[in-house]
Design a protein around this nucleic acid. Structure first.
Lengths: 229, 229
DNA sequence: ATGCCAAAAATTGTATACAATTTATCAGGA
DNA sequence: TCCTGATAAATTGTATACAATTTTTGGCAT
């Protein structure tokens, strides 16, 4: 596993990881300004280390930095939203198929536990945690496929998807995706690569089509925001 | 176009970009230690900005940072080399097909000029420049496809490929790839998406198979290098 | 010579200081 | 009231200082 991806997945052992976790769980909303001094005070570190964390997150597109203007949680455009899911649809189905060839009993147990946790979080009404776990499920499959490079891409795309969902997921389609994850599990358990690939592709298309990509996301934008970037 | 990718492509308007350019052109060999003070003195800036540049390049895998040990130009493993080209084979053929749908006359002119430059560099014996131009050709096609997300991935992969070639390209297969680039051009000009996709896939497989991935890359490694990471 | 340990040098990690730039505030005039 | 512009406050960009860590050096015993 990949240190670059760890922070994206939201490990809480680094500033970037903690910020990523907060973004994943939708505690930090898209657009939120991230002032270096404030973040530094919260975590008890100097601007130096906060800056490094923000630049890292910016490189992964979770945060947007404008020169001399500071950082804020990214607000993916409609176009970007579409692209991210298109890229996922290109990478993840094939990755799921690759995972079949390498998956172990331990992996299957971990995935099952994962789905359990997801259910538990949903039952407890903790949508933020459920969403993050749902993303981790995809990341876990990419990890099993054992291709670091593509694993890194998928991790980044899943992280960005969390932001996209925060912005564009209006109609709360019930049952979310637990069904798809179950179907994926079963294909993996049966070592059925073709089915895993197909299920994953369908799942991602479902996700994309459950987004409300038409209207401008939200709120009254500043004129500056509209004209400058 | 993408600011993240610009530095990888080697624009010389930033420290990261200059370092990336040097890596692309094989002036900085894999394994070269990059001491913050030295780099800073060369470019006339303080460690602060050098650090940021190194972290940026590390995130793109052109540079490897070990905590408290500093940064050096990455030495992709054999496995990583294979993965990078596999990822490219997954992304770029489809990208070439997408490019067909959007390509303009101006794009075709630019690509043609690009191939010209490549030839000129080769004729002048400037292999470093030729190599970089060859990479830029692929990046240009991804740019034409007009999918920022995938464009970013391809840019990163091409940059890493440059390192891989530096390490593993022993047998100097003549004519390199100019032929493939010509074939690609002609498919694009004819608006033949299927052919573009096929040519690209073949081209990448050729590249991979022209690498000498068997033996340990080079030189007497320190015991520490072998055991610690 | 060779191996080992302590001291010195070099290098990175983090905090702070100051300069440059942007953003907010507010007085004055149309 | 609403604009305008100057001034002050806030914030980022960069350099420097110091602490923590690693690497090198040089004796000293084997």
């Amino acid at each position: 596993m990949d240190d670059a991806a760890n922070a994206l997945a939201g490990t809480s052992d680094t500033i970037a990881g903690r910020l990523a976790l907060a973004i994943h769980e939708h505690r930090l909303a898209p657009g939120t300004k991230l002032v270096e001094d404030e973040v530094g005070e919260v975590y008890g570190v100097s601007r130096t280390v906060v800056r490094a964390a923000l630049q890292r997150l910016a490189h992964d597109r979770l945060v947007t930095i404008h020169r001399n203007r500071g950082a804020s949680v990214s607000q993916p455009s409609i176009r970007e939203a579409r692209e991210v899911f298109e890229a996922r649809a290109l990478l993840e189905p094939r990755t799921a198929r690759s995972a079949v060839a390498r998956i172990t009993a331990a992996d299957l147990r971990r995935l099952a536990a994962h789905i359990e946790d997801e259910h538990a979080a949903l039952a407890a009404g903790d949508a933020g945690r459920a969403l993050r776990l749902s993303g981790l499920f995809h990341i876990e499959i990419a990890r099993i496929a054992d291709q670091d490079t593509i694993f890194g891409f998928v991790t980044q795309l899943v992280a960005r998807s969390s932001l996209i969902i925060a912005l564009y997921w209006r109609r709360r389609t019930a049952l979310c995706e637990s069904h798809a994850h179950h179907a994926l599990m079963s294909a993996l358990r049966d070592q059925d690569g073709a089915r895993a690939e197909e299920v994953m592709k369908g799942h991602l298309l479902d996700l994309l089509s459950s987004l409300d990509l038409r209207p401008p996301p939200d709120g009254p934008k500043t004129l500056r925001e509209v004209l400058l970037p």
